[in-house]
Design a protein around this nucleic acid. Structure first.
Lengths: 116, 116
DNA sequence: ACTTTCTTCAACCCAACGGTTGAACATCGA
DNA sequence: TCGATGTTCAACCGTTGGGTTGAAGAAAGT
């Protein structure tokens, strides 16, 4: 997943309606109308949300008759956790080596980073 | 982490500059000036980005003398992967039970969902 | 063929966003 | 005390985003 797709995917999930849509679709596919039903907004608005999710790679819409069936794309979710976890691990490694340093040099040294 | 914090955190990471800032800070704390240095934009703009990250709970700025030291807040990253992974697991469970169904009923049944 | 149903397209509105510049504020060094 | 440094505040500008309404398109039912 390239950078602008990451942009789009994070942006897509920053909207509560869209997160809710994804959450519900994780539990089972649905048509546009079914997705839209619970919300107090126009079907057009929901259709736009679905487009945003689709362009972010988080969703697939497949045409069946006159309806369109929406299903979540697991790979996109994986890409997101991928980015975050990669950096979480960097952080943890840093903390571990800091703990190690503190334990080794024992007393007095409160400071961290950039020995400048 | 409440819903609006999730909104903010996902939104914060949807900007490439802010993702880059987070990435770099995962590798070590830095002052605002140090964070801003690599970018072709004003220090004020970067300061705004840092505010966005801070309000999203992804960052902490602590004052030391006339500078402000920025450090990543690991818990916020964890909250994000938490949300995503929760739903990824729902998806996987769904797929597994679908596989099971297909394997059990063997021939012919191509359809899924909402037996209506 | 006609009408209804499901979905999208298009134009518009207002609020929020990412950037700018200029000024203010607080701390450090001389 | 005074100037330089690091950071933020405030006002502004152009673009994007989430919503609306109205109309169009395409498949289904009769």
């Amino acid at each position: 997943m390239d950078d602008t797709q990451l942009d789009r995917a994070f942006a897509a999930l920053s909207d509560p309606t869209r997160r809710d849509i994804v959450a519900r679709l994780c539990d089972g596919d649905a048509t546009v109308g079914e997705v839209a039903a619970p919300y107090a907004m126009s079907v057009q608005a929901v259709s736009k949300h679905l487009t945003v999710l689709e362009e972010a790679g988080l969703l697939r819409r497949t045409t069946v008759g006159r309806q369109r069936r929406c299903s979540v794309e697991p790979a996109a979710l994986a890409a997101l956790t991928g980015w975050i976890d990669r950096h979480r691990r960097m952080l943890e490694r840093r903390f571990r080596s800091l703990d190690l340093l503190l334990a080794r040099t024992a007393p007095d040294p409160p400071h961290e980073e950039e020995p400048s």
